[in-house]
Amino acid sequence: MAGRTQALSSRGVFVFIFALSFVHVNTNSTDINPCASQAEDVRNTTLLPHYLPPAKPTLNQWCESGLVPDVIDAPPPLQMRVRYSDLSVNYGNILTPAQVRSPPTQLTWPGEQNGLYTLVMIDPDAPSRQDPTLREFLHWIIGNMPCCSLGSGEIQAQYFPAGPPKGSGLHRYPLLVFKQPEYVIFHEPVLTNKSFEGRPNFSTRKFAHKYELELVAGNFFQAEYDSTVDELYRMVEQQ
């Protein structure tokens, strides 16, 4: 009986410690500095508390989509929960470019209390999945994020909205979170969202290998052309 009581007590301690690894950050709060100078395009992003780990994705969801092996060698161990306003990203569901014009409003993934993380979003289907000569088109990178505070991270590539060309069909858009071994000094130039420069032919694999990043969580959606893409291209070309 004493052994069973000790086991239950140990289990309770484990659950309590595990729960502490999920951090609630609301970047809309007046009590939190959103670091607007560094994180202007994520100032409305909220990280919600979850005291149980997100469901593990199945191998099929990543393999059937082709993201394994097109982008990564194996599925992320855990699910990242992503929302654009009231719309959830759910392993390949279809959203429109208009719906993802702004950065996600909510991101949630399990993390370590003192860990640092890098978020990467890309399009492996540029200009089309049938002819991906620009694979991968880089959409977003934020590095050196404390668990789990995007507003305190360092933007390496500003959020660039999904812009699949007309007639190119569905494009896949994975969002991937990597754990860093330590603080990283990134050597790539910081990219704005006012230019295509530096975004085509990015390699998530090479980037992760270069900085010894460990993939821990992810999710993805699909999108195809709508009329807002034309407006996006016009805005970039006018810069």
Rank of each mutant, 00 (worst) to 15 (best):
Q79N: 13
P76H: 13
L52M: 10
L59G: 07
L47E: 01
L78A: 08
R81P: 00
V71L: 01
I72F: 00
Y84E: 09
H50R: 13
M80K: 04
H50A: 05
K56T: 15
E64C: 10
N60I: 11
V68A: 02
D70E: 08
L47T: 07
L78Y: 15
L59C: 07
L47W: 03
P77L: 07
P77I: 14
I72Y: 01
P54I: 14
A55T: 15
D70S: 08
L59Q: 12
L47Y: 02
L87R: 11
L52C: 03
T45M: 04
D86W: 01
K56P: 02
G66K: 03
Y84C: 04
T45C: 01
P53L: 12
Q79P: 00
D86R: 07
T46D: 06
S85V: 11
T58K: 15
I72E: 00
P57K: 14
L78R: 15
G66D: 03
Q61D: 09
P77E: 06
D73F: 05
L47V: 06
T46F: 07
W62Y: 09
T45N: 02
P75R: 14
D86H: 07
H50K: 09
A74Y: 15
S88H: 07
P49Y: 08
R81S: 03
V68E: 00
P76Q: 12
E64Q: 13
N60E: 05
L87Q: 11
L59Y: 09
T58C: 09
S88I: 07
P49Q: 09
L67Y: 01
P77K: 15
I72G: 00
K56F: 06
D70Q: 08
V82N: 04
S88M: 03
V68H: 02
P75I: 13
P57L: 09
T46M: 05
P49I: 12
M80Q: 10
